[in-house]
Design a protein around this nucleic acid. Structure first.
Lengths: 134, 134
DNA sequence: ATACATGCAAACACTTTGCAGCACA
DNA sequence: TGTGCTGCAAAGTGTTTGCATGTAT
């Protein structure tokens, strides 16, 4: 693996990500860090997110349909995404390490990981919708 | 639901998608249709894919990490994606309608659907890689 | 001292949109 | 005949890259 250096920017990415609980997008993270460190470049955030994810120091959650999310919690777990407000939540359910065993014929495919994303409407958005109907 | 018209372009989208077995991206579909119908605009392909998916006449597979895919087979099923060549395959395994029942606490979330994508290396890419090592 | 990292801007890939003319029902 | 649809180009997102400079080791 290529050597990587300790830098202020890298530390800020990790620390800020740990502080934010909402699976921020790269852009949200950028905005947040920039409050404390205005000279930060967005390219640096993207670059560091990629490097740190490659080292397993944070989790890159690839989101269909919208900007990717990042998570400082690196254990395998699933997510649910609100189709209205696009917020992403952790799902409290077991991780199915062996789910790929259900595949009848892998056609020579070598499965390494899987992503499971639930979609629906979060409580907040459903409540707003109710109010609007009155 | 809003009224939609039958047009040559819409028919071509549906027919060509049914002919292609590889879960094409919008762009691949566009290129294919354009061979027979050169005046076609890419915007029209995107617009029609969205309309037809909304009517359940084709399946829109939102792909993390790369361009979305489309499938004429509209039953619920899962996919696997090769991390090397990016091809997408159907997975031959049961669809877990009730998988969301494993969630301990939905926090008020109203779950409607879920996406499950396996990732790994397809047989073709693994073989190529073996040859390269010799 | 030597690479790796940064900031900036430009490029990139994918998708959506405004608009004027066209064609299905 | 009317309104939905088309082609075109431009704009919009999210992300990556080239380059000169900066900085950790």
């Amino acid at each position: 693996m290529k050597k990587t250096r300790k830098t202020i920017q890298k530390n800020l990415v990790l620390a800020t990500l740990a502080d934010m609980k909402n699976h921020p997008t790269a852009d949200q993270l950028f905005t947040e860090i920039q409050k404390k460190y205005p000279s930060l470049s967005k390219a640096t955030v993207y670059r560091n997110l990629k490097i740190l994810a490659g080292q397993g120091r944070l989790k890159h959650i690839e989101m269909p349909d919208s900007a990717d999310r990042f998570d400082h919690f690196t254990d395998n777990h699933y997510h649910m995404k609100c189709t209205v407000c696009s917020k992403v939540y952790d799902v409290d359910m077991p991780y199915f390490d062996k789910i790929s065993e259900f595949i009848k014929d892998t056609k020579g495919f070598d499965i390494e990981t899987h992503d499971l994303v639930f979609k629906g409407i979060c409580g907040e958005c459903r409540n707003k919708n109710k109010q609007r109907r009155n």
